[in-house]
């Protein structure tokens, strides 16, 4: 990838602490458009916090977030969604009382153009709008092979499928940047293989840039173009998967060598 192209996402000097407890300290890295970037590191390294900073769930005390050419001190969740950032959560955050279809349709809420009055009376833009959103939702359903569970309440689905529906809800927004917080946590080999396949397809077919957190190093090495390693809230490695794996700090963090 050419170095002259500005990165899609660029974090610089991000520091985040909760009541004095530092979660993330002075972290900066770039994510190029179209790449799959993996955030790895031991538990408590600050990976999820960093994702929460990127899409505005947390506001960092210091630093700057530059996304799609626009620099911000901090993001707000709604602002991030409008800018084209979608995400999934480590502990599934689906709308449990709603069907698979309705969950995915909520991902289209920003694209909805009709007012609530039009929706109540089913006049004006409401009917065509609903059908347009449904068509996109159906594309996502077909892509993730969720057709059989379209009208099933998500609370009744097994864990692996719920993860897939959550990915679907994020995809329905047609995001530029997709943040995946441990998309394969708790999955068996088969489910992991399937999820990796979906992630790779999203990246290749839609050109979506992806930042993901994953513990399975095998999956990370296979899937990602770029790996950022965190430990105790600091960045200890940043580069191509093979290069990062060879770094002594990374080996130390993972194998627990004596620290200095």
């Amino acid at each position: 990838m050419s170095e002259t192209v500005a990165p899609l996402l660029s974090l610089s000097h991000i520091s985040l602490s909760f009541k004095g407890v530092k979660a993330v300290t002075d972290i900066g890295f770039d994510v190029a458009e179209g790449e799959i970037c993996a955030l790895i590191g031991p538990n408590g390294a600050g990976k999820s916090s960093l994702l929460n900073v990127i899409n505005g769930v947390y506001q960092p005390q210091q630093g700057e977030i530059r996304f799609a050419g626009r620099a911000r001190r901090a993001m707000q969740p709604h602002e991030a969604a409008v800018a084209g950032i979608a995400r999934t959560f480590q502990n599934i955050a689906l709308f449990k009382g709603m069907s698979v279809l309705d969950n995915i349709l909520t991902g289209r809420n920003l694209a909805s153009r009709s007012s609530w009055l039009e929706q109540a009376f089913r006049v004006g833009r409401a009917v065509a709008d609903e059908e347009a959103q449904r068509a996109v939702a159906e594309e996502v359903i077909a892509f993730l092979r969720l057709q059989a569970w379209r009208h099933t309440p998500v609370g009744q689905l097994p864990y692996g499928l719920q993860k897939r529906v959550e990915l679907g809800r994020a995809l329905a927004a047609r995001p530029r940047l997709l943040l995946l917080d441990e998309p394969m946590a708790g999955m068996n080999r088969e489910e992991k293989r399937e999820m990796s396949q979906f992630i790779r397809e999203v990246n290749q077919v839609f050109g979506t840039t992806i930042v993901l957190i994953e513990h399975d190093i095998g999956v990370v090495m296979e899937l990602s173009d770029h790996v950022v390693v965190l430990d105790y809230g600091r960045k200890i490695g940043d580069g191509e998967p093979e290069a990062v794996r060879a770094l002594p700090e990374v080996i130390a963090a993972y194998l627990g060598q004596q620290r200095h």
Binding site: L105, T106, N109, Q119, A120
Partner: peptide, 29 residues
């Protein structure tokens, strides 16, 4: 009118806020 509303975008947004408001905010509701 209410039956129409709960099956449309606003109704889904309501249920999303009901079920998990953090996730609702993150998808732009």
């Amino acid at each position: 009118l209410a039956a129409n509303l709960v099956r449309s975008s606003l109704g889904r947004n309501w249920m999303a806020v009901r079920d998990m408001d953090t996730a609702a905010a993150v998808i732009g509701i």
